[in-house]
Design a protein around this nucleic acid. Structure first.
Lengths: 213, 213
DNA sequence: CCGTTTTTGTGCATTACTGCACAGATGATC
DNA sequence: GATCATCTGTGCAGTAATGCACAAAAACGG
């Protein structure tokens, strides 16, 4: 050990310079959030989301209950952000598959992902706020459909006709419904089977000439 | 969400009350220290302790380098505390075995523990400060020997005769040496074998009438 | 329905951690 | 042995996390 007694303190004079592009988040924030999220997911494997208390989460995450409120409005906000993250993950997966992927391939990605996070998603659909979450899924599937489908192949859907809109909503609801069924039945068939059948169904409905055209 | 706008702030008036017996350590301290220690142990599996830098540790532990200095004087202090913890662990194990345990049983505890933390201990003995660590081990074994042996069965060694002291040092050095040999040879025999042989040797030397008596 | 526990959302003072700068030490390479 | 890179130990200002208290709300149990 040596003794450093000089007293220079001019290190904060450009404090605002690096604020330009990537303000790296404080590692404390990252760690807290990760711990909290991991705790929630763990707990959701064990009991329904509705009966998870914030105290449970803070205990499991080894984080002060107060800390949770620093990052999330309440339990639902937390769950919401968690779901949003999953949706993003799913979107990234789909994007990575590329535009030339078959419906079956995309579907396989969906079902495999859902299976991988079975505990989380099934707890979601069993919770009181399930309708909210179902809606969020619907939104996602609608996005994906209108992004990759043949309803608007020339331009990224600048404007949908009523007919196209109906088709989209129809298929979106169908997908959400079939996912829900799959979960409720405790995954009676493997993802690859689901993907194949749903792929066929989507293809039949989307490859066909749009009736409104 | 509800809105709580009242302004009571009289919660710190007995701030010094709970200081009596168990001042629970801040969870941040515990977490930082655990992360740091785990990181060191991980790194010691990968490279010699001498070429582990504090930056390595802070990266692996996901903790600011500055934080490490809040808890430890320097790298050696850190290693020292880590070793101390292992020694305590070992001591607890021995105590739990009870006074009626055979040398072979105690020895088995030693060798099993050493094997379980092979990476850590062998890295220790390969490091530059190995002589320091060897000495620390010697101290521990001497303690254990004079605690459980037959040199002073009536009272917890109030005073050792020269002859007893020689025996103690002799056997302590022997144990440290044999452990070192075991590590250097990459554990050619299992702990149970080591324990049996060392047990026999200790018994032969300790059960016999002390020559100085 | 009412009393009792539990849980929630918040205020606040205090503490631990962080990131960065920097000088001096150490060490490698030419 | 000079140059350059890396590592160490420290100061400091700013920020996140903590623990506790407490009131209001919700859940529970008779």
């Amino acid at each position: 050990m040596h003794y450093c007694t000089d007293d220079r303190a001019l290190c904060t004079y450009l404090k605002k310079v690096g604020e330009s592009s990537v303000t790296k988040t404080d590692r404390r924030i990252r760690k807290s959030q990760e711990a909290i999220k991991a705790a929630v997911i763990e707990l959701m494997m064990e009991k329904s989301f509705d009966q998870i208390t914030l105290q449970d989460i803070s205990d499991r995450a080894d984080v002060s209950r107060r800390t949770i409120y620093l990052h999330y409005m309440d339990k639902f906000d937390l769950l919401d952000k968690l779901l949003e993250e999953h949706i993003n993950e799913l979107r990234k997966l789909c994007d990575a598959a590329g535009a030339e992927a078959e419906y079956e391939d995309i579907g396989l990605l969906w079902f495999e992902y859902l299976e991988r996070h079975y505990g989380f998603f099934s707890a979601l659909l069993a919770s009181k706020g399930s309708s909210f979450f179902r809606n969020r899924f619907l939104t996602f599937f609608l996005e994906e459909l209108s992004k990759a489908d043949d309803l608007s192949p020339e331009e990224s859907n600048p404007e949908l006709t009523d007919g196209e809109n109906i088709e989209l909503q129809f298929l979106g609801a169908a997908i959400v419904g079939i996912v829900e069924w799959w979960f409720k039945q405790d995954k009676p068939v493997p993802p690859v089977f689901m993907a194949e059948r749903v792929g066929v169904l989507l293809e039949r409905n989307l490859e066909a000439e749009s009736p409104s055209m």
